[in-house]
Computed example of a mutant assay.
Amino acid sequence: MMNYLKIFVAILMCFAMGAFAQSNVIILATGGTIAGAGAQSTNSASYQAAKVPVDQLLLGVPELNRVAKVRGEQVFQKASESLTDEDIVLLAKRVSALAKRSDVDGIVITHGTDTLEETCLFLSITVHTDKPVVCVASMRPSTAMSADGPLNLLSAVTVAADRQSRAKGALIVMNDEILSARDTSKMMNIKPNAFISPWGALGMVLEGKTYYFRTLAKRFGKHSEFNIDEISTLPDVRVIYGHGNAKSDLYYAAAQAGAKAIIHAGTGNGSVAGAVTPTLLELRSKGMQIVRSSHVNAGGFVLRNAEANDDQNGWVVAHDFNPQKARILTALALTKTSDPKEIQRIFWEY
């Protein structure tokens, strides 16, 4: 009898210490393909995004309840190409507010793939928390014969519920991989392994377990100088694509529309065409920030003072940030400074 009593007391103590407690994970839904629907089960590329509400999305993956205590919240219901800077600021503020709560252990954001990398980078740099913030999406709608959304969502919640995932910056979980939001981009638009980092995955999630192999060496989260609680709006930053036979009219149009910076998505090492160079020099002399990026798909790496005299021109290079990520970081940098040397420091450190 005494032994049974000891066992009972031990069980009660375990419950009191949380040994059997599940993590509390909030799923913030924003729409996208993961909430999309097609007319037929064979439609994996032609469908309508952002049709399935979060409650229905969660009901489709009952296994989530075995991993964590999950509840959903519908923040937006949009295809991600239609999200604005105002939207991502609002989302980040909601993530920040939830991360401060003691009854929240991790946060998952369901999102469309088209701008997932931009939103998740923004969250990684501006939300000051060590709690896991995990972005997840799918390449096929929920109605497709081989939908990847349910497993991606389960994997994302698994990662968010795991204490190993703390203090790693915002993460992207898709196709069994745990990827850093900083350097992961959509490289393909029709395959489930669409998201790739040129520097490799941080880890894997397989059969309900997370496995980490590396960490991020750049600034994020609590180590960032950018805090979403102090940000209300973002400066207007435009991306203009470099190509053969380039002209200057789009750069002038961006300046006339009120842009504070232009990301030049150049060829190769962020090269600027001879016909465009005088225009960028003129705009810089008038206070416009010029950031040289590269539109090389597999990972452009722009070297300073190569292809252009950045020191003399007062230009910034985007390091290994692609144009769309460079836009996000430049907008954040402009909330702090208009000094191109300081903006360059930010690109090196983040």
Rank of each mutant, 00 (worst) to 15 (best):
Leu98Glu: 15
Ala318Asp: 07
Leu206Val: 14
Gly72Ala: 01
Ala99Ser: 15
Thr84Cys: 06
Leu234Thr: 09
Val316Phe: 04
Val205Thr: 06
Gly268Thr: 12
Ala147Thr: 14
Ile343Thr: 00
Thr115Val: 12
Gln312Pro: 02
Asn193Leu: 01
Cys14Met: 13
Arg101Ile: 08
Arg71Ala: 13
Ser80Phe: 09
Asp236His: 09
Lys191His: 07
Gly266Asn: 02
Ser185Phe: 04
Lys78Asp: 11
Gly268Tyr: 10
Leu90Gly: 11
Gly258Val: 03
Val291Met: 08
Ala217Glu: 08
Thr30Trp: 09
Phe220Asp: 12
Gly72Ser: 04
Gly274Asn: 12
Gln324Pro: 02
Asp162Ala: 08
Lys247Cys: 03
Ile172Phe: 02
Val75Trp: 05
Ser197Glu: 03
Ala35Cys: 04
Ser102Cys: 06
Lys6Met: 06
Ala92Glu: 12
Ser185Met: 07
Leu216Trp: 06
Asp105Val: 02
Ile262Thr: 04
Gly106Ala: 08
Ala254Lys: 03
Asp85Leu: 11
Arg345Gln: 09
Asp320Tyr: 01
Ile107Ala: 09
His243Ser: 12
Ala257Met: 04
Ile26Arg: 14
Val133Leu: 08
Lys51Cys: 11
Ser180Trp: 01
Met204Asn: 10
Asp148Trp: 01
Glu63Lys: 13
Leu98Trp: 14
Gln344Phe: 02
Val127Tyr: 13
Met17Gln: 08
Phe195Leu: 02
Ala331Thr: 07
Leu283His: 14
Ala19Arg: 03
Thr84Trp: 10
Ile109Gly: 06
Ser232Tyr: 09
Leu28Phe: 10
Thr335Glu: 14
Pro141Ala: 07
Met204His: 13
Ser96Cys: 09
Thr30Ala: 06
Thr33Ala: 08
Tyr4Arg: 09
Asn24Thr: 00
Lys222Cys: 13
Ser80Met: 12
Val67Gln: 10
His264Gln: 07
Phe220Gly: 12
Thr42Gln: 14
Asp183Cys: 03
Gly72Asp: 06
Asn3Trp: 04
Asn43Pro: 01
Arg214Tyr: 00
Asp176Met: 10
His243Trp: 05
Ser41Met: 09
Ser294His: 09
Gly60Tyr: 10
Ile228Tyr: 12
Ala254Leu: 06
Lys186His: 10
Asp310Cys: 10
Gln289Ser: 08
His223Tyr: 07
Arg345Cys: 00
Gly208Thr: 05
Arg140Lys: 13
Lys93Phe: 03
Glu86Met: 00
Ala257Val: 07
Thr84Glu: 14
Glu117Ile: 07
Asn189Met: 02
Leu332Arg: 11
Leu303Ala: 08
Pro278Leu: 12
Lys186Met: 04
Gly169Leu: 13
Gln289Phe: 01
